[in-house]
Design a binder for these strands. Structure first.
Length: 373
DNA sequence: CATTCCCGCCAAACA
DNA sequence: TGTTTGGCGGGAATG
């Protein structure tokens, strides 16, 4: 209990207005993210370093890293070493997960009807390197099946392998749990899902909203993946409705209703919705296009939003001037937001927008801190 | 009251 | 063995 390893951590010494949110996984994740893409694309980031930079215990980094890896933005390289793949890696990873999920679903459907734990119990390792050893492959690696990474991936599958687009964590937990009806297990699983949801939110993959009819909080997938209808690109070259951010109103967006009562089973719904396979090729094409765009962007130096990875110019001297500048940029940002039509740019931008907030908060904290001292 | 979820104990996995 | 990872759930902050 000796107060070791704190030298400058004595910022919140006074229990004045400490808030839990200052230490939330989501915020931490945002900071981690921004730290990551400050480095190059295929850069290696060390956990020790990250933990140190962010001023948190090692443990929390593990959480974030595992979840991020589930969506492809990071890859484990070696002990303590992760590779930053960038946001562009997300679509591929998610797509793969979707495919995987659908496969599992159909496989089991031909066997029995009692699905539900389809996704949960897919004990297929799928190592990076082919297969090699076919036998045994599992001992007491029960642990791995319960890993945050797997859970996160299954969570993603839930969104993409059913027609339900509003999912509550309770439902997700019970679905992922399968037939086990242990209240304690439910509790734990839900707790994990909170963590995952938080980092997904900070990645702008999902969004938390209140259920229209329930009032209870549910999550909804956002970011590029739209419904198969509508003519992808083209369509609306964006207008100047500057204030077009989501959240303002409930626009349409939801052609289909959903049941959130504890009576209907999510999976059974998902089962009879295998039509998605049909959209496969369409989606493929779309993906191709975006891939090209990505490449193009990568070749040219593209944009990187208002501020480049290394464009953190002289700050820290004049606070007010900077703030003003930021406001300007922010305004600019919101104006341009609706103009991005393709997914990659969109998410990229979303991330930057989010980074603003986090930075501003940070700056404010710093200011307060110094002011106090 | 219910929902959210931080913190860190402590046990697998690994060097 | 010591170190790195990371389940897991108590219980406190928050809504």
């Amino acid at each position: 209990m000796s107060s070791s390893l704190h030298t400058e951590d004595s910022q919140w010494k006074n229990p004045s207005i400490y808030s839990r949110k200052d230490k939330s996984l989501g915020l931490l994740c945002s900071n981690f993210l921004k730290l990551c893409d400050r480095e190059g694309e295929d850069s290696t980031i060390g956990l020790d370093n990250a933990a140190d930079q962010l001023g948190v215990e090692r443990r929390r980094i593990y959480d974030i890293v595992n979840i991020l890896e589930s969506v492809g933005v990071l890859s484990r390289k070696a002990k303590n070493q992760y590779r930053w793949n960038g946001y562009s890696a997300i679509s591929k990873a998610v797509d793969l997960l979707k495919k995987e999920g659908l496969k599992d679903l159909s496989t089991v459907s031909s066997t029995c009807h009692n699905v539900s734990n389809v996704i949960a119990c897919n004990n297929s390792d799928v190592k990076e390197k082919g297969e090699g050893k076919t036998a045994g492959s599992n001992k007491i690696d029960n642990r791995k099946e319960k890993s945050l990474m797997i859970l996160a991936q299954n969570f993603v599958k839930l969104f993409h392998c059913s027609d339900v687009d509003l999912i509550s964590l309770d439902k997700a937990a019970s679905t992922l749990l399968g037939d086990v009806h242990d209240p304690m297990a439910m509790k734990t699983k839900t707790r994990r899902l909170y963590d995952i949801a938080n980092v997904f939110v900070s990645l702008n993959l999902i969004e938390k909203i209140r259920s229209p009819d329930n009032g209870k909080p549910v999550f909804r997938w956002i970011a590029w993946n739209e419904n198969p209808r509508s003519g992808s690109l083209a369509a609306a070259k964006s207008d100047d409705s500057t204030r077009r951010t989501f959240g303002a109103e409930i626009t349409n967006i939801t052609p289909k209703r959903y049941r959130d009562d504890s009576s209907s089973d999510l999976m059974s719904n998902g089962l009879k919705r295998l039509k998605v396979a049909k959209d496969d090729e369409l989606k493929d094409k779309k993906q191709e296009i975006s891939a090209e765009q990505l490449n193009e962007r990568g070749t040219k130096d593209f944009v990187f939003g208002p501020f480049g990875p290394s464009s953190l110019p002289r700050s820290g001297i004049s606070g007010k001037e900077n703030l003003k500048q930021i406001q300007n940029w922010e305004d600019l940002a919101s104006k341009y937001h609706p103009q991005y039509q393709n997914k990659a740019a969109n998410e990229l931008f979303a991330h930057y927008v989010e980074a603003w907030e986090s930075w501003q908060v940070e700056a404010a904290n710093e200011l307060h801190k110094q002011h106090e001292h």
